[in-house]
Design a protein around this nucleic acid. Structure first.
Length: 583
RNA sequence: GCCCUGGUAGCUCAGUGGAUAGAGCACCCGCCUCCUAAGCGGGGGGUCGUAGGUUCAACUCCUACCCAGGGCACCA
């Protein structure tokens, strides 16, 4: 509809300009917009105001001239000049009611489009370290990414969802010793010293007991060895380094591997299950270790060495990222010979590019923003186009319990897990809450409020609209009436109350909302839309009775609410929120 | 100091350069002999952080400044 009007308007503008006999350098793009106020019609164009200057006439006069040139076409009721020179288009009711049979016929496909042109997109999200369970801080990225994936698929993109598993490096060593030290408690029958910066969560002890139940006699350090390490340093990181050494020397590779693998597998399985239950899925779990095993990191480093992008300083190897727009150079190989996380990230991103995607999207926590320029810099060094990589920063969710701000730290074991949150407020409310506001906005998640007032959450408001429609259908069956779509569609012109018109306009807008939300990568647009749609329905519900005697009118109304139900289902489906039949 | 993100109603937040800046919560007033009141209708409430600039038109774009949160590792 929008395009039809735009085309008519464009040709009218063309005719008008010829009539005026003026030459305009750049032909202005003729566009129309939805209006916010029904008094301004359904669509409005600002073209007259844009032309005012080049033509040299008052906007209202130009608007009038354009309207004279506009050919009539069906479904257009009238157009008016308003305000400073807007041209407002008013559609006939039939123009809107046309959408109802379309929705009923397309059903689940209503709102889908091919605007993505099968573009291949790699979407990486969550990627939290496998050193502990998913907590509330990760939940937002999870919900946001999964809705984004749905939005992009719905609009005709080919999306690959990926989770980057940091199963390599120092953090894994710390995880391993954390488990090992807890294991030693069980072996010795009493608590042994535990460094402050190791992982403190209960799950560490649980993994340790699981290992202990299978193998009770892993090698032990000499008595007092641990204590002397812990007493020997004031710096926490030095303590960890020495314990890591001790663990490797004591357990040897064979048993070290046992503890490590057990810990990683256990935690990763938990993460997968958690996300799965939360409705967050992945097509691929990409292991950082696999980069090492396939020598991709060293290949990348060699390449950078050969192009002279790496130099030595203070015993370490540095990538010259300042040459590619970063504010300082970055270490890729440490003095101790180990590669840094950044080195892995270079290899990972180069591999992403080599896998042939049209667009690569990373969803990162806001604390990672400092990495953007160095990763893009590295890609430039490899001759890759950094514009293909879009990095979306999701601001952290700060958790409050009443007025008290809760800290989120995997190390200290001081956090609320995603599972706890889901158990308390439910999957639907949790998902909806996370994507309710735009990603760049800080999110204050008040646990008390979410728990105590979960009924005030808009998700229930939307679900309630769906449940009400289902309930009405149930009542219809109980009264031995049936839903006759054909009669209903023939009778749509009987729908003429204000609330009906408002509702049909709302459901007609849905495909456009999906497109905008996908294009701007803004799931919250859909949340807001669904709330408005539910409002329009509830208003309708209160102002009109659906189960009326008049068969034609009843069937028409059922067509409208059936279409509405479909749109709510489709929209909630994209958000990953259920559409219950009763509440 | 540098970088990122916010600053819009009492609170939490929407707002593709357009017309009188909008929701929810909270507050006040109405609405169930009728399809679920987890609902509907009405009302009060605003110098859109501040100051300039661009534009026919700025909450929206640009610059500077103020305030808040986050980030600036041979950690991941």
């Amino acid at each position: 509809m929008k395009e039809i009007i735009e085309n008519h308007l464009a040709s009218a503008v063309e005719t008008y300009i010829k009539q005026q006999n003026v030459s305009i350098n750049a032909a202005p793009s003729v566009e129309i917009d939805h209006t916010n106020d029904p008094q301004h019609g359904d669509f409005a164009s600002n073209i007259a105001m844009i032309l005012a200057k080049p033509i040299g006439l008052p906007p209202r006069e130009i608007a009038n001239g354009i309207i004279q040139c506009l050919s009539e076409f069906p479904l257009l009721d009238k157009c008016e000049i308003a305000g400073p020179g807007f041209i407002n288009f008013f559609l006939t009711k039939d123009a809107y009611y046309q959408i109802i049979p379309e929705i009923l016929e397309q059903a689940k496909d209503y709102g889908k489009s091919e605007s993505g042109n099968s573009k291949k997109i790699l979407l990486e999200y969550v990627s939290s370290n496998p050193t502990g369970p998913i907590h509330i801080g990760h939940g937002r990225g999870a919900a946001y990414g999964s809705v984004l994936a749905n939005l992009l698929s719905t609009t005709g993109h080919k999306v690959t969802r990926e989770y980057y598993v940091n199963d390599y490096g120092r953090q894994m060593d710390i995880l391993t010793i954390s488990v090992w030290l807890r294991y030693l408690n069980l072996q010795n029958g009493h608590d042994i010293p535990f460094p402050q910066n190791a992982y403190h969560g209960q799950y560490i002890s649980d993994i340790a007991s699981a290992i202990y139940n299978k193998a009770k006699s892993l090698p032990q350090p000499e008595p007092g060895e641990l204590q002397s390490i812990i007493n020997g340093h004031t710096e926490e990181d030095k303590k960890l380094d020495e314990i890591i050494e001790l663990a490797k020397n004591t357990l040897k590779q064979q048993y070290h591997e046992v503890v490590f693998t057990h810990a990683l597998d256990d935690i990763l399985a938990g993460i997968k299950q958690d996300l799965n239950e939360f409705g967050v899925g992945f097509d691929r779990w990409y292991s950082e270790r696999s980069l090492v095993d396939k020598n991709l990191i060293s290949e990348c480093m060699d390449k950078l060495e050969s192009t002279g992008d790496i130099y030595e300083k203070e015993g370490a190897r540095w990538f010259k990222s300042t040459a590619y727009g970063d504010e300082k150079d970055r270490v890729v190989v440490r003095e101790n010979g180990l590669t840094t996380y950044f080195a892995s990230d270079i290899a990972y991103h180069v591999d992403k590019y080599n896998r042939g995607f049209d667009e690569i999207i990373n969803i990162w926590g806001a604390d990672h923003h400092g990495y953007i320029s160095r990763v893009k810099g590295a890609l430039k060094a490899f001759g890759k186009d950094p514009a293909k990589l879009k990095i979306l920063l999701v601001q952290f969710a700060t958790l409050y319990k009443g007025d008290e701000k809760l800290q989120m730290s995997t190390r200290s074991g001081d956090y609320v897990t995603l599972k706890q949150l889901r158990d308390e407020v439910g999957n639907d409310a949790t998902r909806f809450f996370y994507v309710m506001r735009k990603a760049e906005q800080h999110l204050d998640f008040d646990l008390e409020l979410a728990k105590s007032e979960s009924n005030a959450n808009p998700v229930y408001y939307i679900q309630y609209a769906h449940a009400r429609i289902c309930s009405v259908f149930k009542q219809m069956t109980e009264r031995n009436l049936n839903f006759d779509i054909e009669t209903g569609i023939k009778s749509l012109s009987l729908l003429e109350t204000e609330s009906e018109l408002k509702l049909v306009k709302a459901i007609a807008r849905y495909p456009e909302v999906i497109n905008i939300a996908a294009r701007n990568l803004e799931p919250h647009q859909l949340s807001f839309y669904l709330r408005e749609l539910a409002n329009d329905f509830h208003a309708y519900y209160n102002s009109c009775q659906f189960l009326v005697e008049n068969d034609a009118l009843r069937q028409a109304r059922f067509c409208l609410i059936s279409a509405t139900r479909q749109v709510i289902q489709n929209g909630l489906g994209i958000l990953g929120v259920s559409a219950p039949e009763e509440m």
